[in-house]
Design a protein around this nucleic acid. Structure first.
Lengths: 209, 209
DNA sequence: TGTACATCAGTGAACGCGCGTTCACTGATGTAC
DNA sequence: TGTACATCAGTGAACGCGCGTTCACTGATGTAC
């Protein structure tokens, strides 16, 4: 079950599934979601073009698996940053936004598979679930923030969660990509998002903003 | 120079360039940016696979042309909605946001070519220019809005323009796509964006928000 | 502990397909005189 | 106005390529007894 990296492998690979997922990530990171083929992933793994069919129905299933892993890693990163709102929701939210951008920049393959892979989240229950969990972190954050707003006219926390999401996603997708496709900006994406969230929170009447 | 639609065409097509661009748009709308090929565009136009080379260097140049047209149409739609801030900046901004979402929903091919085509805006000066012009509408809107904020601590209008852009783009890319890939929402994308912008403007201290 | 056998995971050759691209060509158009 | 000719725009056949997918196969692994 455990295979040394440099060891010559025998007839059986041993962890082909794992290797193929990593190969897919490498290829997606390098050439984008479109320039990733089943055949090339096999070649990358040093295996015949028929071998992947033992582990994945087709290219889309492999891509979906990458996306699932992406959402799992994403959720972990966001939850770690949010840290249940410690020491206070504002500081934690700031970390959350930075974590969002960091993830997109550091994991272009995950980001591409998650949001540009052409795999609808509804297609795979596993994918849907992983994506829900990641969003749940944002929901939790929104709830704590809403609790800090004046009770009169308190906004629905689901809406606030969606707003946070769209702000982070908008900045990330327009300016925060890992590859060099971003446009010139007078400030860093992180600064842009931070300022935006602060204005938004002030508009919400969050105490201390 | 003018060709009736149903007329049988002779050896020369007459407006192949135009027809290819429209074919590309149809294909991109149907199958996304990845599932669009030079050969199929030619077939779609009823012309030999070698013919497109008389008009475009390669597939990417055709895609870039679609993106350029997209930005031109986008600018027109945004400018029309903004209408120089009449009758007041808040009402105009609301229209602007709706126009952004409408465009993305109604013109999936343009949107895809503009933001998902893998064509960096910096690649083509014409593309860069068209994209600048579209953004200029947002800048103009941001300037008028900033003028309506308290002079003390007035934010830079470029930043506000970028914030408006990322909010609209975030909502559009996550929830406002023309195809059925959007997720379930407790409200329409337009409502979500409108509420978000209102909170943001209140945070900015815009008079009347 | 050894042996027989079922199952598993990867092979490699083959296939049909559509794409991108080239080439010499040819029909149509426009223009100089 | 007519004619000769240059230029333009599209043809169609051909090519090499890589992809997705299948197939009967075979080497390795695990397990029952």
């Amino acid at each position: 079950m455990s295979w040394g990296k440099g060891e010559p492998r025998g007839y059986h690979h041993g962890n082909l599934r794992e290797t193929l997922i990593r190969a897919a990530m490498d290829l997606i990171a390098k050439k984008g979601t479109a320039g990733f083929t089943f055949a090339e992933a096999a070649r990358f793994a040093g295996v015949s073009p028929a071998a992947p069919y033992r582990h994945f129905r087709d290219r889309d299933e492999l891509m979906a698996q990458v996306a699932v892993r992406g959402f799992v890693a994403f959720e972990a990163a966001l939850a770690r940053a949010w840290d249940e709102g410690r020491p206070n929701p504002l500081a934690a939210l700031d970390r959350l936004g930075k974590a969002y951008l960091d993830f997109v920049r550091a994991e272009p393959a995950y980001y591409a598979a998650m949001f540009e892979g052409g795999i609808p989240a509804s297609a795979d229950p596993q994918l849907r679930d992983a994506s829900e969990r990641a969003f749940a972190v944002l929901r939790a954050a929104a709830e704590k923030l809403c609790a800090a707003t004046p009770p009169a006219g308190r906004p629905p926390s689901l809406m606030v969660a969606l707003h946070i999401w769209t702000m982070a996603h908008g900045v990330a997708s327009l300016f925060g990509r890992g590859d060099g496709a971003q446009r010139a900006l007078p400030m860093s994406p992180a600064e842009l998002l931070e300022a935006q969230v602060l204005v938004y929170l002030r508009g919400l009447g969050v105490t201390g903003a």
